[in-house]
């Protein structure tokens, strides 16, 4: 567990941002990851009072506040109806309900963890990240940005009519994924293939052949070959690189088939 001298419940984003400019201060997410650290902080900053625990829908997008819990993501009807249950599928394996009531979307995305199911899924949905000072950036840009002192305020999921499938392989039901694949399709952007737990953080590729109602076996093979060529894989305690490469092919195929259904 970390130590902190002060806890501050921020009254507005500006106050939170000001506090966060100090290196020894830190914004709290759901704490599921952060509490495993042993750091000494001066001040931990809580965004709980800023009404950022809301999922809002308008014509163009869903907006998900950074303090929305993973369990909220899992049970939100509109989101899951729109995205064919993919959000539920991507979080339901994560440890347990109590954990998902703690862990926040903001924490998951800000952490840019290699194992993150949420990051993998959001990447295939072409999500945008709203930063307090940095404005709106694409999630894949955000994923490669260095950790800075800005505040992740919300995630925006554009409503582009994407078909999506989320696939993951885990050694036990509630473990981190050995590999996670999120695949989406819409007429304008074609296929987005996001691969997480490589074990590095998720990366996303575009692929323009075929449609969601038609993709031949050869085209699927081409797609997986393209992904394997352009995404690097590694080894850790959960699996070696070669097995992840193998899994990647399997999971992409399964995702395509689910979308083609």
């Amino acid at each position: 567990m970390f130590h902190a001298k002060n806890y501050v419940l921020a009254q507005n984003l500006e106050e939170a941002w000001q506090l966060n400019q100090k290196k020894t201060n830190k914004i709290l997410g759901g704490m599921a990851w952060m509490k495993m650290g042993k750091q000494n902080y001066q001040t931990v900053i809580d965004l709980s009072a800023l009404h950022l625990d809301q999922i809002e829908e308008n014509e163009d997008a869903f907006s998900i506040g950074c303090m929305v819990s993973l369990h909220d993501l899992e049970t939100n009807q509109q989101l899951n109806e729109y995205f064919q249950g993919a959000l539920k599928e991507c979080v339901r394996h994560i440890v347990g309900v109590q954990f998902r009531n703690c862990a926040t979307v903001g924490g998951s995305i800000y952490g840019r963890f290699g194992f993150s199911d949420v990051l993998t899924c959001f990447m295939a949905l072409d999500a945008k990240v709203e930063l307090y000072k940095g404005g709106i950036v694409s999630i894949s840009d955000f994923a490669s940005m260095p950790y800075d002192n800005d505040i992740l305020v919300r995630i925006i999921l554009p409503k582009k009519g994407k078909r999506i499938s989320y696939q993951s392989m885990r050694n036990t039901a509630t473990d981190f994924p050995v590999l996670a694949v999120a695949l989406s399709f819409d007429e304008q952007e074609g296929w987005l293939i996001s691969v997480g737990a490589r074990p590095g953080k998720a990366v996303v590729l575009c692929w323009q052949e075929g449609t969601s109602s038609e993709l031949s076996e050869v085209q699927i093979d081409n797609m997986t070959a393209y992904v394997l060529e352009n995404i690097s894989f590694g080894s850790n305690m959960r699996a070696k690189k070669e097995y992840r490469q193998h899994l990647c092919k399997v999971l992409i195929k399964r995702a395509v088939k689910e979308i083609l259904k």
């Binding site: 709290l28 704490m31 109590q98 009531n101 703690c102």
Partner: peptide, 13 residues
């Protein structure tokens, strides 16, 4: 009313 992990929750919260 919601189940949470008290090991991951600050009392302050």
């Amino acid at each position: 009313g919601k189940p949470v992990l008290s090991c991951s929750t600050l009392a302050a919260r």
